[in-house]
Amino acid sequence: MTITELITVILLVVGCFFFLAGTLGVLRFPDLFSRLHALTKADNLGLGFIAAGIALHIASPWSALKIFFIWLFTLLASSTSCYLIAKFQREQHKPQNGKEQE
């Protein structure tokens, strides 16, 4: 096993750990806002690690750039959608002070 492969393995394992953390957060946290927090931060960090590991494994500058852009777009999309969902939820359920309803 070369040193590059070792770094790839470590990066992927760290990424998987963050994905697991995000999923557990989505499952276990009590309300939507904390779930949003878990999902949009932990998962994107995990994706960043996995993207870095795979970019290292493929080792071509063009695809590394593409993977970097994928990560960048995901960051952008998930941060804005986090904001939009949180704002939407707050406007929809203002009267029920925290009580959830469908």
Binding site: F73, L76, T80, Y83, L84, K87
Partner: peptide
């Protein structure tokens, strides 16, 4: 109304 939503739409359209 939301300025951020407008920016998101204006960003993703050319993308």
């Amino acid at each position: 109304q939301d300025p951020l939503l407008r920016q998101v739409i204006l960003f993703f359209t050319p993308v």
